[in-house]
Amino acid sequence: MIELDKVSRTFQVGDQQVLALREVSLSVAAGEYIAIMGPSGSGKSTLLNLLGLLDRPSGGRYHLDGRDVTDLNEAESARVRREKIGFVFQSFHLVPRLNAAANVALPMLLAGVAPAERKQRVTQLLAEVGLSERADHLPSQLSGGQLQRVAIARAMSMHPALLLADEPTGNLDRATGREVMGVLEALNLAGAALIVITHDQDIGARARRRISMLDGRVITDA
C-alpha cells in the first residue's frame, strides 16, 4: 500500500541544511501494524508527516495505493488526506468550541457528506469508541482518554485505509494509554493499516512490526 523510495527531507534552519530524513525506503502492506520508535530528532515525526501528505519530500518518490503522490498539488493532496488517511495526535487537537459529535463530524463536513448520513455515522463511530453518552459534551468536559477516543472516532470517520498516530498515548496515564491503544488496535484488526510513533517500549512491543530510527535513517525494521 505504501511504497517509499529513497525519500529524503531537508530543512533550512538559518543558513544550515538539516537532514531530517536520509533516503528512507519503506514499504507497508495494507492492514499492517507498525510502531516507529527512536529518540527525539530521529525523523519519526517528519516521516509520519510525509506519509500523511502534510509535508513533501525533498527527494525520492512516494506511492500510495499504487499512485505517485509525491508531487500532488495542494487540493489533490487534501483530497487524498480526506479519503485515505486518518490522523491521531498526541495533544488530541479537538476544536474546543465544538462538542464531541461535531468534532467527529469535521472530516465528513470537509468531504461534503450529507448531514443525515453524517449524523448516522457519528452515532455509530461514537458507539464504537464507547462514548455514545458523551456526544453533546464539549472537549473541556471530557477526560484525556475520552478526548483521544473522540479524536480516534474522528480519524476513522471517512473509513481511511491508513491510520497515523503520533504518540497517541503521550499525554495519557498508562492505564488510559493502554485502553486507547486497544481502540486503535481494534480498528487495525478491522482492516486499517496502523502506524504509531511511540517512546513507550511496551506499546512498541505490541506492534507486529517495529521500525527504529536514528538520525533520519531506519536502523532496524523487524
Binding site: G52, L54, E74, A75, A78, R81, E83, V95, L106, L110
Partner: peptide
C-alpha cells in the same frame, strides 16, 4: 493556527 492546521490535516484544502 492550530485549528487551521488541524482542518488541513483532516483534509481541508487551502480553498476550504
Amino acid at each position: 493556527r492550530a485549528e487551521i492546521g488541524l482542518l488541513k490535516a483532516l483534509g481541508a484544502s487551502a480553498g476550504n
